[in-house]
Design a protein around this nucleic acid. Structure first.
Length: 281
DNA sequence: CTAGCTTCCTGGGGGC
DNA sequence: TGCCCCCAGGAAGCTA
């Protein structure tokens, strides 16, 4: 599941491959449930850079003749990945043997960006910021970047105080903080010793959670993310954070702090692993 | 407005 | 070995 560290790792690999390239041809999946918006507008546009907000990849494009400053907005969903390899010869398999290719962007340097997404949860849009609310509503209301100065203890503590929803639900809701998904929510809550279903997190524990989120995401980026099932990087390699997971997917194993068997439950409609001894409501 | 449930999709794992 | 069933999950869309 690509979350912030995985998307950031993909972004870093894309920068040298995409920056300054012009898109000469575009194809996308005609499947009725495919989540594409305005992708035809990519033809003959230049990619100015590769940025990230939360789990969204953003590629600013050169302005249209009408002066419209739109962007390519990509969300990998659960199973999305990107490859950048040679464009296939005419008549050859345009997907070069890759499965589940849902979109292709042919670049002016002889490479093709292939967006693979077995479960079709990913989204690819061409949209200007003033249309985020209609096209990518989560991006329009996204909270601060967790590794930026805007993400403060005060912001997290006050945000948690304004709601009685389970703290894990608040971490997954992209409005409080951007980019945290199921893996790093479980990891941060374990590190901060907070029960995922806790509905009251006062300032002292909010400060622990703030530090845990920052430390976990920083360490995961250093290891280029977690490869659990589908996630892989642009060059096909895996993230190396999986062996550091203390909670996510570790139910039935002993807690690394106290040895208690980690328990699996459901919080916010998501599989959740926690330590019943360290993490009390 | 918020909280929380359902929906989309399909590979893979478990059970028999 | 094969078949069936069901699960995993981010975000959007819905209900109450």
């Amino acid at each position: 599941m690509p979350e912030l560290p995985e998307v950031e790792s993909v972004r870093r690999q894309l920068v040298p491959r995409l920056s300054g390239r012009r898109i000469v041809e575009v194809w996308w999946d005609p499947h009725p449930q495919a989540r594409f918006h305005g992708v035809g507008r990519l033809r003959n546009r230049r990619i100015e850079g590769v940025e990230r907000r939360g789990k969204f990849l953003l590629c600013p494009l050169d302005p249209t003749p009408q002066g419209r400053a739109d962007q390519l907005v990509l969300h990998l969903g659960m199973t999305g990945s990107l490859s950048v390899e040679a464009t296939s010869e005419a008549g050859a398999d345009p997907d070069a043997g890759l499965t589940h290719v849902r979109a292709r962007l042919d670049l002016d340097d002889g490479h093709t960006v292939r967006f693979r997404d077995p479960r079709r949860f990913g989204r690819l849009s061409v949209v200007a910021p003033d249309a985020y609310a209609e096209v990518v509503p989560t991006l329009a209301v996204l909270g601060p970047e967790p590794l930026s100065p805007a993400f403060t203890v005060e912001h997290l503590a006050e945000g948690l105080a304004r709601s009685r929803a389970p703290v894990k639900a608040r971490l997954l809701d992209q409005r409080l903080v951007a980019g945290v998904g199921n893996i790093y929510a479980d990891e941060a809550l374990w590190r901060a010793r907070i029960h995922p279903a806790s509905r009251r997190v006062a300032r002292p524990r909010a400060a622990l959670l703030h530090a845990a989120v920052v430390e976990i995401l920083t360490a995961a980026i250093e290891r280029e993310g977690t490869t659990f099932r589908d996630y892989q990087m642009v060059n096909g390699s895996s993230g190396r954070y999986a062996t550091f997971l203390a909670a996510y997917g570790q139910h039935g194993r002993p807690c690394r702090r106290c040895g208690t068997t980690l328990r699996r439950t459901v919080v916010a409609q998501r599989g959740t692993t926690y330590c019943p001894t360290c993490q009390r409501i």
